[in-house]
Structure formats: C-alpha cells, structure tokens
C-alpha cells in the first residue's frame, strides 16, 4: 500500500475521493506506541528518564479508505509537530463529508487554491523541498475538472500504480 510523502498530497487526494464517494469513505487515524529501547537493569532513574525522551517510538498512520471502490490513501509520520496540522486536515475533510454549505460551494475552485497555499506553507514552514511539492499539486489541480464524479476512484488507482 503506497504512502504519500507529503501530507498535503494526502489531503488533496483524500478530498477528491471524498467528493467522489462521500457516503462510504472513512478516515482512520492509527497511533501506535511501542516501548522504548530496553533499558539495562543497572540504569539509574535519571538515565531511564533520558532514555524515554530519546527513544520515542510512536508513529501515526492516517488512512482514507473507501470500501466500495477499494481505494486506500495513506500517510505516515512520527513527528509530533504534524499532529495539529493533521487533525486540522481531518476537520476540513469532515466538513466536506458532512456536506456543509461553505465547504460544498467552494469545493471546486477555492478548495484547490487553498491546497496550493497549504503546500507552500508547509514547505516553507518545514524549510525543505517546497519546490518538489508544487509541481505535483499543480499537476493534480489540472486533473480536477475531469475527476468530478465516481470515475475519480479509477483515475486515482491508476495514479497510485505509478507511485
């Protein structure tokens, strides 16, 4: 199962999938925690605390899945600073799934502009490879008009194969 390397890409494709199949698509957030590296019995309490800090062993997998078409879009991270942004994305997608007026009205035009901005913000905030994100998002935006309906599921699957 492919993972997206950018959460913005995940959000973009998830919103397309949600637009195509709003009633069946679900989004799961999976937070795993495994014990930190084994600590020697002789370790002092201070050492144990330090080990706990260093050996953070949690990760977060966020999946958009549509059982009807079998499309599954995933994103994985182990960075704490991303949690807030991801939950915000969940909120955006939930608003669309709920069919709220404001989200629905601007879905086609402004939604995509927003996505571009989000990608730029994310890239700048992280201080890394925003140059790589932008072409991908721009290319995806061009495809949006064709991907309006349920056919989007098929298109996405094909794209997934290339990744």
């Amino acid at each position: 199962m492919p993972y997206y390397s950018k959460s913005e890409d995940w959000l973009h494709h998830s919103s397309l999938l949600l637009a195509a199949r709003p009633t069946t698509t679900r989004i799961s957030t999976n937070y795993h925690l495994s014990p930190a590296r084994r600590t020697p019995k002789s370790a002092t309490p201070e050492q144990v605390v330090e080990d706990e800090k260093r050996g953070k062993r949690g990760h977060l997998v966020i999946t958009t899945f549509d059982p009807k078409s079998g499309v599954s879009l995933k994103y994985k991270t182990s960075k704490a600073q991303e949690v807030g942004r991801l939950v915000q994305m969940l909120g955006t997608l939930a608003g669309r799934a709920a069919g709220r007026e404001e989200e629905r009205g601007v879905k086609k035009e402004e939604g995509d502009v927003e996505m571009g901005e989000a990608a730029a913000d994310g890239g700048a905030g992280e201080g890394q490879g925003s140059g790589i994100v932008m072409p991908v998002v721009a290319a995806a935006e061009k495809q949006v008009p064709q991907v309006g309906g349920a056919g989007g599921g098929g298109g996405k699957k094909k794209k997934k194969g290339k990744r």
């Binding site: 957030t29 937070y31 925690l33 953070k56 062993r57 949690g58 990760h59 977060l60 991270t77 182990s78 960075k79 704490a80 600073q81 949690v83 807030g84 939950v87 915000q88 969940l90 909120g91 939930a94 608003g95 709920a98 069919g99 709220r100």
Partner: peptide, 26 residues
C-alpha cells in the same frame, strides 16, 4: 452535528496533541 464540527476539531486537536506524546518532538 455539522455545525459543531469546528469546536469539536479544535478540542480534538488539543487532546490528540497531548495524547500522542510518543512522537518525536521537533
């Protein structure tokens, strides 16, 4: 409910940020 989503997700984010402390800090 659709109207409560914003307030819910604001709290949801706080609970998740606090709860997922096993992730790597910056």
């Amino acid at each position: 409910q659709p109207d409560d989503l914003d307030s819910f997700y604001a709290r949801y984010a706080d609970v998740c940020k606090a709860g997922m402390s096993g992730l790597k800090p910056r």
